[in-house]
Amino acid sequence: MKQAGRKHVKSKWAVAGLFVLSVCASVAFAKDKLLADEHDYKVMATVGGIPVTMPEFEKSVQRNKSGVLSYFHDKYSAEQIPGFWTSSFEGEVPQDLLKKRALDDSLRIKVTEWIAMEQGVINDISYQGFLKQLEQENARRMKAAANHQVIYGPLQYNEDTYLQYILTNAATAVKQKIQLDEHLKPDELALKAFYEKHKHDLYQTPGDIKLFTMAVSFLDANHQVDPVKKERAGKQLKEAAAMLESGASFADTAKTYSDRKTEDELVINLGNDRNNSRSPVARAAAKMNIGETSDIVEENGSLYLLRCTDKTDPGSAFVPFEEIADQVLKDYIDREYENMIQIKLDEAQVNVDESLYQSWKVEE
C-alpha cells in the first residue's frame, strides 16, 4: 500500500522551510540507523523511511479499540459479542476500521517524533530505543524513591504512559524553540490576523453576570447550622425583598439587612460550568435578567438576595485581543505545530507491508 503525498496549503513556516535545515543529512543517516535498529521487530509501515514496528501498531490498536466499539454501538447498536470484529454493519467492518485508525494513529505518532528528532529534542525514535529509555527512566525513579527523593508522576511508567510523557514533553520543547526563534515567532500583525480569523470559534466571550448581593449567615460560633438563626435570616431577607419591591435601593436595603451592612459586588463567569454547577448562587444568577432581584438563595451557611446589574450572554461578544494576547500566541503556535505534523504526514512517502496489514486480525 502506498500513499502519495497530498498537496496541502502551507503556512509561512512551511514555505520558509522550518524543518528543512542543516540537519537533513544527519536525519537521513538517522533513518538508515532506525531501520537497522528495528531488526528485532516486524515493520508494519514506514513513513518518510522511518519504521513503525508491529508493537507500535498494536499499541495504537489498543488505544483505538474503545473508540471503534463506541462508534459501532452508537451507529448500529452493536455489542461486542463473538464475531463482532469481523461482522459487516451496512458494509462497515469493525476490524477494518480499527486497523485503519491504528495505522493512522501510529503514523502520526511517528511523524511527531520525527519532527522532534529533527529539532534535536529526541535523539532516538526507534521502538527499541523507546524501550531502553523506559527501562532507564523507571530505574532512575526506583533509585530516587529508595533515596527518599521527590518523584513527580508515577513511581513506574508503563509503555502507554511513558509514550504520552515523551510526546507531551517533545511537543512542549518544539513549541518553545519556535517561540524563542526570532525568525519564526509571529509578530503582532500575524497574531491579530490569527485572532480575527479564529475569533468566532476561539475567542467569543463565555459571558458573565454582574450582581449586587446581600447575605445573612445562619451559622453558629462553631460554624454549624443554627436552625433559629436560619429562620431569623429567612425572615430578615423576606423583609429586605419587600423593601426592594416597594422601590428601596439595593444599597440602602443592604445597610439595614445584610451582615456586612453593605452591598457586595459579584461577577460570575458563565463559562465556568464546573464551578457554577456547584454554586446555588451562580445557578440562580444565570437565569436572571438585568434589573431583576432573585428569590432567597441558600449557599455555604448563608442566605442571599441577588440583584442583576449587567449581563453579557455567551457568544454575544468577543474577548478583546489586548486582554488575551498571550493566549492568542499560544493558540497560534499550537495550530501551526499541528499544521506542520499534518503537512509532513501529507508529503511523506508511506509504505505499508500489505501482507502484514491484511493478515492482522483482532483477537476475540
Rank of each mutant, 00 (worst) to 15 (best):
F218A: 04
V216P: 01
A190Q: 14
E188W: 02
Q176W: 10
Q176T: 04
P227K: 14
K230D: 03
A254W: 00
S246P: 01
M243T: 07
K197Q: 15
D259I: 04
M243D: 13
F212S: 01
K192L: 12
K175I: 00
K235E: 12
P186Q: 07
R260Q: 13
K230C: 01
E245N: 10
A190C: 12
K197W: 06
D201F: 11
E231T: 05
E196G: 03
L180Y: 04
H223A: 15
G234Q: 05
K197V: 01
Q224R: 15
A193E: 12
K175F: 11
K235Y: 03
T205K: 10
F212R: 15
Q236K: 12
G234T: 01
T256H: 07
E188P: 01
T205H: 15
R260K: 13
V174P: 04
A233S: 10
P206M: 06
K192I: 11
F212V: 01
K238Y: 08
L191N: 00
A221M: 12
F212T: 03
E182Y: 08
H223K: 06
L180C: 12
T253W: 06
H223Y: 09
K255F: 05
A241T: 05
Q204E: 14
A193G: 01
D220E: 09
K230P: 04
G247N: 14
G207S: 02
E188H: 08
H198F: 13
Q236V: 04
S246I: 05
Q179G: 01
L180E: 13
Q236W: 10
T253K: 06
N222Q: 15
E239M: 11
K199D: 02
A248Q: 14
D252F: 07
D259C: 09
L180T: 11
K235I: 05
K175S: 08
G234A: 12
F250S: 08
F250W: 00
P227D: 10
V228E: 15
E196M: 09
